[in-house]
């Protein structure tokens, strides 16, 4: 009996709604601990990052202007798609050394997190906005608006939930983002991107790149088009470097920990606030 030769997946990055290789044409060799395959993962260059930022910047005005209801629909759709693709994601997680049962749980939790935050899209502004009872004849109100272009450096410990745990609260609030996959857990990038792509997440809203944090970190933190940066981790040197560089254009830096993406602790709207600005508007009342 002829054994069928399986078709391997090419692991591409996701920039501006397109599946691309690094412009540098570099890859790094990722070795599975489970099977004796090695996989070539794109090694993003600073130019890839730049392109991703351009696409995030271009996507921002229309994504932020979408109705909250619309954003909720898209994120919920994303949950539906991932539900359908669960086996593939479980397989990819397992390939990266996660036990089958843990992988199943992580995928389920990821889907539930998507559903949870889809529900927040049209509510967080109701919780955190205010009508300000000013002592003058003015109507004054404060609402949340997205910070803008956000770079996300997810936890090194998770290949799926940790990544979406950073992305979802960010984009549900109208921001667009560029996310770097963890160097050791890059395999879900393409499947994740495919899921986003087929859920009508507009091109550029989420950009996913793979590569080395050490190479890209400085550019993440210095790029003047970036308005905010979320880092999941404990490395004090990394944090210091990020904050120092971020001061060049006063990026909002959020330093996050495991509890900020792990399922049990992450289900709250405060993670949305990381990438929100308060805008206060005044208008006279009278005739």
């Amino acid at each position: 009996m002829n054994k069928r030769l399986n078709v391997r997946k090419t692991h591409k990055m996701f920039i501006n709604g397109k599946f691309v290789r690094s412009e540098s044409e570099r890859t790094y060799n990722w070795n599975s601990k489970q099977i004796k395959t090695s996989i070539n993962i794109c090694q993003a260059s600073r130019k890839d990052f730049r392109d991703a930022i351009i696409s995030a910047k271009n996507a921002f005005p229309s994504w932020k202007s979408k109705t909250a209801y619309n954003r909720a629909q898209i994120i919920y759709r994303c949950a539906e798609i991932i539900e359908g693709r669960s086996p593939q994601l479980i397989e990819e997680l397992a390939l990266q050394g996660i036990s089958q049962s843990k992988a199943v749980t992580e995928v389920k939790q990821t889907i539930d997190t998507l559903v949870y935050f889809a529900g927040w899209a049209d509510k967080y502004n109701q919780i955190f906005s205010t009508v300000n009872p000013v002592s003058s004849p003015y109507f004054s109100f404060s609402v949340l608006e997205p910070t803008g272009i956000i770079v996300i450096i997810p936890s090194e410990k998770s290949g799926l939930l940790g990544i979406l745990g950073g992305i979802i609260p960010t984009i549900i609030g109208g921001n667009t983002c560029v996310t770097l996959m963890p160097q050791d857990y890059p395999l879900c990038a393409a499947s994740l991107a495919e899921s986003l792509h087929s859920s009508d997440v507009p091109p550029g809203v989420v950009n996913i790149i793979t590569g080395f944090q050490s190479e890209l970190l400085e550019h993440f933190a210095t790029h003047m088009e970036v308005n905010g940066l979320i880092y999941f981790g404990e490395n004090i040197d990394t944090i210091t470097a990020i904050e120092q560089n971020a001061s060049q254009n006063l990026k909002r830096v959020s330093i996050c920990h495991d509890k900020d993406w792990m399922y049990n602790d992450s289900l709250h709207p405060y993670s949305i606030l990381r990438t929100q600005e308060t805008k206060t508007t005044w208008h006279p009342i009278g005739y």
Partner: peptide, 8 residues
């Protein structure tokens, strides 16, 4: 005419 502006 903005009445509040006039008042101020």
């Amino acid at each position: 005419i903005d009445a509040i502006g006039i008042k101020e």
